[in-house]
Amino acid sequence: MTSVRTIVRVANVTKTFQLGKIAVHALKGVDLEIPTGQYVSIMGPSGSGKSTLFNMIGGLDKPSTGKVFIDEVDISQLDAYELAWLRCRKIGYIFQTFNIIQVMTALENVTLPMTFAGMRSERATEKGMELLELVGLADRFQHKPFELSGGQQQRVAIARALANDPAIILADEPTGNLDLSTGEEIITLLKNLSHERGVTIISATHDIKMLNVSDQVVWIRDGRIDKIESREELTISVGRIDARAGA
């Protein structure tokens, strides 16, 4: 563990939304380094700025001040083409609301990013089927999203996020719209991916179940980082809570 590369670096990022005369400070100066291959959970109460941070890291929105580096490249310096390439090849997104394209089948959804990446159609279909198999939906490849359950849609989204072998998967409350056991399945799936493929997973969540699988938990409160706990510290504090609960 001597030479762990930093894949995401957030440097003093603030974000202010101007709502008429009122300025909403969603992020008030966030510094964060995420090493390659880790499973990082961003935890915090509703409105604390998790989604805002998620959008900054994913290059979906621009910080008011500060910088975000992906692989040590400042993403505010990228032009439209480079940004599109980054979204296409480097980052896979998973959303709370699944965001499967409704008019396309499961397979078409998964192969779309490969098409953008310039992959030949037969190869894309082949790989799309492999990915659907990986998430356990190979037999549903021709189904439209409305014929799939929420958990199944989220798995299609995970397969789609993996389409171009991204280095990072960003997940904003991936289990937010799912029931307990389905949420657990999704979490296990993500954990296995980070283990087996070495993908860096950054997940914003309310879901305490996420804690068990995270290598690192970033607690965020009111637009600032409250504390960052690694896995070891976490088991201790969770253990303490358990002990207290037991007493």
Partner: peptide, 13 residues
Amino acid sequence: TATAPQPRIHRQV
């Protein structure tokens, strides 16, 4: 996998 050295930012989509 992501741990292997990867090409930097390109522009082809």
